[in-house]
Amino acid sequence: ATVGSICDLNLKIPEINSSDMSAHVTSPSGRVTEAEIVPMGKNSHCVRFVPQEMGVHTVSVKYRGQHVTGSPFQFTVG
């Protein structure tokens, strides 16, 4: 992922509605921003955001307030 470019995290989660999901990204400096959740068809969801700084980011994806399997996810920008 690169700073200022759209970053997509694709998840396969069976039998949940994306409208019941939420996602937030925490940057290396601790800034928390909301991420967009895009339905991608049956059981597939895309978490979309634009990182604003380099370094390790943490993406928390929740369904009805509970982390989904594997969340929070970490990835490096830059």
Rank of each mutant, 00 (worst) to 15 (best):
H57G: 07
R64E: 15
Y63N: 14
F73H: 01
S18V: 04
I13M: 02
V32E: 11
Y63S: 15
Y63P: 04
G55W: 04
G41K: 14
M40C: 08
I6F: 09
S5W: 03
F75C: 06
Q74G: 13
M40F: 03
Y63D: 13
P51T: 00
S44A: 04
T33W: 09
C7T: 06
G70S: 14
E34S: 11
T26N: 08
P72E: 06
C46Y: 03
T26L: 07
S71I: 02
V77L: 02
P14H: 06
G55R: 02
T26M: 10
C7G: 00
Q52S: 12
S60K: 09
G65T: 11
I16C: 00
S71V: 03
S18D: 01
M40A: 14
V68I: 06
V59K: 02
T2L: 04
C46F: 01
I16Q: 04
E36S: 13
V25K: 06
V32C: 08
I6E: 05
R64H: 14
V32Q: 12
F49H: 03
S27G: 15
G78C: 04
G65L: 11
A23N: 03
V77Q: 01
H67L: 04
I6M: 05
T2I: 05
V47T: 02
N17L: 08
T33F: 09
V32L: 09
M21V: 14
C7A: 06
P14S: 06
S18T: 06
C46V: 07
G65Q: 13
I37V: 08
V77M: 00
G41M: 06
E34C: 11
N43F: 06
F75S: 15
G4A: 00
Q74H: 09
S19A: 13
V32W: 09
F73D: 03
E34K: 12
N17T: 06
A1T: 06
T58H: 11
M54A: 15
V77G: 04
Q52G: 13
E34Y: 12
V32N: 14
F73G: 01
V61N: 02
S44G: 11
T26E: 11
E34H: 08
N17F: 07
P39V: 07
M40G: 15
T2Y: 03
I6H: 05
R48D: 01
R31L: 12
M40S: 15
T76I: 09
R64N: 15
E15H: 14
Q66F: 03
Q66S: 11
T2V: 05
H57R: 01
V3K: 06
V38D: 06
V3S: 03
C7S: 01
F75P: 15
V68T: 09
T33E: 12
Q52K: 11
I16R: 04
H57T: 14
V3R: 03
K12L: 09
V68M: 04
T26G: 10
F75I: 15
I13E: 01
T69A: 13
P72A: 05
V61I: 01
R31P: 14
V47G: 01
F73L: 02
T69R: 06
S18C: 07
V77E: 03
K62L: 13
F49C: 10
T33L: 11
R64W: 08
A23G: 11
G41L: 07
P14R: 04
S27P: 15
H24D: 07
H45C: 04
T69E: 14
A23C: 00
S44D: 14
K12S: 11
P51Y: 02
T58P: 15
M54R: 07
F75W: 08
V77K: 02
N10D: 07
A23S: 05
Y63R: 10
A1M: 11
T2W: 05
S5Y: 06
K62T: 14
G55P: 00
K12R: 08
Y63G: 15
G41F: 02
P72K: 14
H57L: 13
V59H: 00
S71G: 08
G41C: 07
E53Q: 09
Q52P: 14
K12P: 02
G41Y: 05
V56S: 10
G55A: 07
T2D: 00
S71H: 04
V59A: 01
K42A: 08
N17W: 04
T69F: 04
I13A: 01
D8Y: 05
V3Q: 05
T26Y: 14
H45A: 10
L11V: 13
N43A: 12
V68A: 05
G70I: 08
R48C: 00
V25A: 12
K12Y: 11
M54H: 15
E15L: 09
L9M: 12
T2K: 09
P51K: 07
G78D: 04
S44C: 04
G70W: 00
R48H: 00
V50A: 03
K12D: 13
R31Y: 14
S71A: 05
H67K: 08
T26S: 09
V68S: 04
V77W: 02
N17Y: 12
V32F: 11
Q74V: 14
A1S: 04
A1D: 08
V56L: 13
R64M: 14
G4M: 03
R48S: 03
F75G: 07
G55N: 10
E34W: 08
E15S: 09
H57S: 14
R31C: 10
K12F: 10
H24E: 10
V25R: 09
V61Y: 00
T2C: 10
G78F: 05
I16F: 02
G4R: 01
T69C: 09
S5G: 03
S60E: 11
A23F: 01
S5M: 07
P39S: 11
I13T: 03
P14V: 04
C46N: 15
T26A: 10
N43I: 06
I16H: 10
A1Q: 04
V50D: 01
R48P: 01
F75K: 15
S19Y: 03
S19P: 05
N17E: 13
M40P: 14
T76R: 10
A1K: 12
V68E: 02
Q74A: 15
C46E: 04
H45R: 07
G4W: 03
C7E: 00
S71Y: 00
T76K: 09
R64S: 13
R64A: 13
S5H: 07
D20G: 09
K12E: 15
Q66W: 03
H57V: 13
I6Q: 05
F73V: 03
V47C: 02
A23T: 05
G70V: 11
S19T: 03
V61F: 00
E15Y: 10
M54C: 09
I6Y: 09
I6V: 12
A23R: 03
V50C: 05
V68D: 06
K12T: 11
I13N: 04
H57M: 09
S60M: 08
S18E: 03
Q52A: 11
P39K: 10
G55Y: 04
T33M: 12
E34G: 12
V56C: 08
G78Q: 09
T33R: 10
P14F: 03
Q52W: 12
